[in-house]
Design a protein around this nucleic acid. Structure first.
Lengths: 154, 154
DNA sequence: GTAGGTGCAAATCGTTTGCTGATTC
DNA sequence: GAATCAGCAAACGATTTGCACCTAC
């Protein structure tokens, strides 16, 4: 097994994704560019609200609805990964859009990335064994992150 | 790997759980008994609303709030497993309360149980490798169930 | 110029909460 | 008899939608 360090923003990705939007026949509005920039540069698995706040610092005339719409578009493009938690709000991962396991701190809400390469094939294995056609997956571990443990929680 | 058949209701479990409620100092109201019976006998991973509907057939004077409260209580007792999906509503598994993988049909909403025993230890492995203290996990595979495939979806 | 995108506010949906009255122990 | 629980309705938070205006192409 392997635990990868948190992914880091990649300066080229922004250009590629802007290009991909263009090719899709989508308009390149300033809001979209700002939202895209925000979500692919955040290492914190932000909520829609957090992206909204960040984008607003730059473009005060931006609405939350547009953030949701754009995130939906980016998700469809496969540019961001939606992490649907049952409780609270959905989080977004714009750095590593392929499904990968997450460590979710139930205390502070932090989400850390893990890398368990052997899980990548599991979808195929399950498909073959059950006849269920697997399109994607989500693996979440819930618990207490090292930082919170140091503060005395467990 | 192993794919288990769907779990089946166990007639003894009801008694055990009623006893456990008693020992906790909880009251045994008819509503609670009915909700408990409904959730531990359903093989469909029902929503709160579905449990509500089913219980109402027997006790028309039951409120949705009570269903939610009771499900919360049963979850705390470890008698039911909460399956928190990002979209739509939370589902409950009263037949197999330990965490286990689910196959979730994005077409019809069906949830099938899988059994991948090697995943059981993954929590410990992750804990040791990262210092993150894992308390529970949720593994979901999303795709199209065999029944929907037969209807032409994929 | 026009299709598509945006902002705003209102609607929606699942879930939780506050309060009053009822019921289990 | 008293603490707990139920019912109801209102509150709540995240997300979606309808509509009039605007702007990137």
């Amino acid at each position: 097994m392997n635990i990868t360090p948190q992914a880091r923003p990649n300066p080229d990705r922004l250009e590629h994704l802007l290009e991909e939007l263009r090719q899709r026949g989508c308009r390149l509005t300033p809001q979209r560019a700002a939202i895209l920039r925000a979500v692919i540069s955040s290492e914190e698995h932000p909520t829609a609200e957090q992206i909204y706040t960040q984008v607003r610092a730059e473009f005060p005339m931006t609405s939350l609805a547009t953030v949701y719409n754009t995130l939906g578009l980016l998700k469809e493009m496969g540019a961001v990964l939606e992490i649907g938690l049952g409780s609270g709000s959905t989080r977004y991962d714009g750095l590593r859009p392929e499904p990968h396991p997450h460590l979710i701190c139930t205390r502070c809400g932090a989400i850390l990335d893990a890398d368990l390469p052997e899980l990548q094939h599991l979808g195929q294995v399950v498909s073959q064994a059950t006849g269920f056609k697997v399109h994607s997956h989500q693996f979440d571990f819930f618990g207490i992150c090292p930082a919170c443990q140091m503060r005395g929680y467990d």
